[in-house]
Structure formats: structure tokens, C-alpha cells
């Protein structure tokens, strides 16, 4: 097999065969391209279909009869759904506030101070990130049952704060570890006491990390299903749990519509969080 080559005028004709390495490289490149396309299709095609069918006029999923915003209108008439959205936002808001404060303090303590039992505290703090959700859910539920605490939106809040602290602490601590300690020394050298140094130097420099941690916490709280499902009390259903119970009565385009909105909301928050972390 010879490859036809077009030579620029004046150059020596260099007709030659591709070497084995070149062939292999070209083959590998093609395989990798198709593999990555395949993976993205597998990941995102279902979501794309879900979004498309949220605009379907027909009630039966899989039968496209025409474009309609009807299901989005339906959403805003569904009192139970709106109630669960309200609970979701309430839990997400307060768990973000609390876990951001506690997580930031934990990050500062772990990064800036030395104390007895620090290593253990460090490991334990990050445990919620790696423990399976179902274990977290079950143990949290048992905790409430043993202490005889009735399940309500407050128990959801407590559970969400518990796992969100870890995520906020990880994000804030990464930012803190990157920060030059000399900046704080310079502030002290210029006459700022510990509090002023924190307020004028450390906190402003940490802000992008804290905001990014807070957005992450908000997203995780909005999206959580497993833990919430276990600790939610009667009348305090969150949006994901509500969607799950709707599916029991059949998948309607209304479920598609609410899922589409949740997907867009979460994506937006994650993008903002990533942009802030880059800064």
C-alpha cells in the first residue's frame, strides 16, 4: 500500500509507507475518540430524552405527539409538589448557612492549629464523604429514634448539616492550604491583632473558597435523596423524595418537567461553584 502524496513545488518527492507506530497511533486515536463519544452519549442521552419528553403534549411517555409547555404549567398547580419544593429550599438554605459556618471553622482549626487528637478529628471529619449514603441514612435514623426525636423538616436539616460540613471543610481547607502564611504574618507585623488579621486578610482571601463550598452544600442538600428519604417526617417531603413517590403512580411528563428544572438548577450551582474555585 502506498500513500499518494502531493509535494509542494521544488521539494523532493517523498512517497513512503506509514510505519507501524504511525498506524497504531492513528488507530488508537480513532478508538479513543469513539470511546469518549460513546461514554458521553451513554451519560447524557437519557437526560436529553428526559428533557425532550418534558415538552411532550402526550401523557404517555415515548409517544411524541407535539410540543407543549403544558406540563410545566401543571407543575405550578400541584400543591403537594410546591410544598415539597418549599421544604427542599428551606432545608437547603439553612443547612448551607449552618454547614458553611461550621465547615469553615473546622477547616481553619485543622489547617492553622495543632491540638491533641487532631489526626483523628481530621479523619472523622471527612468520613461522611466516603461512607455509603445508605449507612449514613440508617445510622442517622437510628440516632433520632433512639433519642426519641420525631421526624420532621428539622431532622432533615440536622442530617444535611452533618454531611455538608465535610464538603465545605474540604473545599475551604484546600483554599486555606494554598494561602501564603506570610500574608498573615505581614498583617501582624503591620499592627493587626489576630481578629483584624482574620477579618481583613484571611477571610477576604478565603471568600471564593467559602462561597464555592456553600454552593456545593446547597446543591448536595437539594439533590440528596437517600438520607432524606430515611429521616423525612410526615408532611416534610423534599422534592426528590416527592418525585420518587410520584413515579410509583407512573411516569408522567410532569415528572420529566420537574426533573428538568432540578437538573438545570443543580448544573447552574455546580458551574458557579467551579468558576469560583478557579479564581
Amino acid at each position: 500500500m502506498t500513500t499518494a502524496t502531493v509535494n509542494p513545488p521544488g521539494s523532493r518527492p517523498t512517497s513512503r509507507r506509514l510505519t507501524r507506530d504511525e498506524l497504531r497511533a492513528a488507530f488508537n486515536k480513532r478508538i479513543l475518540t469513539w470511546l469518549s463519544i460513546g461514554i458521553f452519549v451513554f451519560l447524557y442521552l437519557p437526560i436529553l430524552i428526559l428533557i425532550i419528553y418534558s415538552f411532550n403534549e402526550n401523557k404517555i411517555v415515548g409517544v411524541w405527539t407535539g410540543f407543549s409547555l403544558n406540563w410545566y404549567q401543571e407543575l405550578f398547580k400541584d400543591a403537594a409538589l410546591l410544598n415539597s419544593l418549599q421544604v427542599s429550599l428551606w432545608v437547603a438554605f439553612w443547612s448551607t448557612i449552618l454547614s458553611t459556618i461550621l465547615g469553615t471553622l473546622a477547616a481553619i482549626v485543622l489547617e492553622r492549629f495543632r491540638f491533641w487528637g487532631k489526626l483523628t478529628y481530621d479523619a472523622v471529619l471527612y468520613l461522611p464523604i466516603i461512607i455509603p449514603d445508605i449507612v449514613m441514612a440508617l445510622s442517622t435514623l437510628l440516632f433520632f429514634v433512639i433519642l426519641n426525636i420525631p421526624l420532621s423538616r428539622y431532622t432533615i436539616l440536622i442530617a444535611h448539616v452533618a454531611f455538608n460540613i465535610s464538603f465545605v471543610a474540604v473545599v475551604v481547607r484546600a483554599r486555606l492550604a494554598d494561602m501564603d502564611r506570610r500574608l498573615e504574618e505581614a498583617a501582624a507585623d503591620l499592627g493587626a491583632n489576630e481578629w483584624l488579621t482574620f477579618r481583613r486578610i484571611t477571610l477576604p482571601l478565603l471568600t471564593p473558597g467559602i462561597v464555592s463550598g456553600a454552593l456545593l452544600a446547597f446543591t448536595l442538600s437539594l439533590d440528596d435523596f437517600v438520607i432524606t428519604f430515611f429521616v423525612a417526617g410526615p408532611g416534610s417531603t423534599t422534592l426528590p423524595v416527592r418525585v420518587y413517590s410520584m413515579i410509583k403512580f407512573g411516569v408522567t411528563p410532569e415528572v420529566n418537567a420537574v426533573s428538568t428544572l432540578m437538573f438545570l438548577g443543580s448544573t447552574l450551582l455546580v458551574v458557579i461553584s467551579l468558576v469560583l474555585q478557579r479564581r
Binding site: 500574608l183 504574618e185 505581614a186 498583617a187 501582624a188 507585623d189 499592627g191
Partner: peptide
């Protein structure tokens, strides 16, 4: 340090 009558120029400058 914040009560001492000295000031430092740091090697890495440590500008805010």
C-alpha cells in the same frame, strides 16, 4: 508582633 515598634520586609514581599 503587632505591638512591636518594628516592621518587616519579607523575602516573598507578602503583599496583600
Amino acid at each position: 508582633p503587632y505591638k512591636r515598634p518594628v516592621n518587616t520586609v519579607f523575602q516573598s514581599y507578602a503583599l496583600f
